[in-house]
């Protein structure tokens, strides 16, 4: 009874998943975003309807090069919005990965109180490896 043959889809490599996810994010922000609903969002609508926005101030970077998800100086709306989206995804990926890399390094460090966390983390990874091994055993290929 092949209980270990649990996966309904073939297991893909972490790197493949990360690249696919990044491409999907770029596609959504760079292309699909053009078709997003242009109406005000829930808070904007409620604020306008009820008068919460009476004392709203202009954004400090309202004239910035990427303000309101469009690249200043690019007139084509589709291109301008798409480019802004791609830049945003790229910047968020960079800043996010940088932050998490630093946090992870601190977690891996040899400082006393971190030891427990470190071993808990590696126990988790070991478990994961076990799971992976079981899956690959079941894989007919």
């Amino acid at each position: 009874m092949p209980i270990v043959g649990t996966r309904t889809l073939p297991k893909i490599r972490t790197r493949t998943l990360l690249i696919a996810g990044a491409l999907l994010a770029l596609l959504l922000a760079g292309f699909v975003s053009y078709y997003a609903d242009k109406n005000p969002d829930g808070l904007e609508k409620v604020a306008a309807d009820k008068g919460i926005d009476a004392k709203e101030k202009d954004h400090a970077t309202a004239d910035g090069p990427l303000a309101d998800y469009s690249v200043k100086g690019v007139d084509n709306q589709r291109l301008s919005g798409g480019l802004a989206g791609v830049l945003g995804v790229g910047a968020t990926l960079l800043v996010g990965s940088g932050v998490f890399w630093i946090v992870k390094r601190r977690g891996d460090g040899g400082v006393g109180d971190v030891d427990g966390a470190g071993s808990a983390g590696s126990a988790g990874s070991a478990g994961g490896l076990g799971g992976d091994a079981a899956a690959s055993v079941a894989d007919p290929s």
Partner: peptide, 13 residues
């Protein structure tokens, strides 16, 4: 760790 940065970028998108 590698997934976390992607999650942020995906949410931005």
């Amino acid at each position: 760790a590698p997934l976390a940065g992607l999650v942020a970028a995906f949410i931005f998108a």
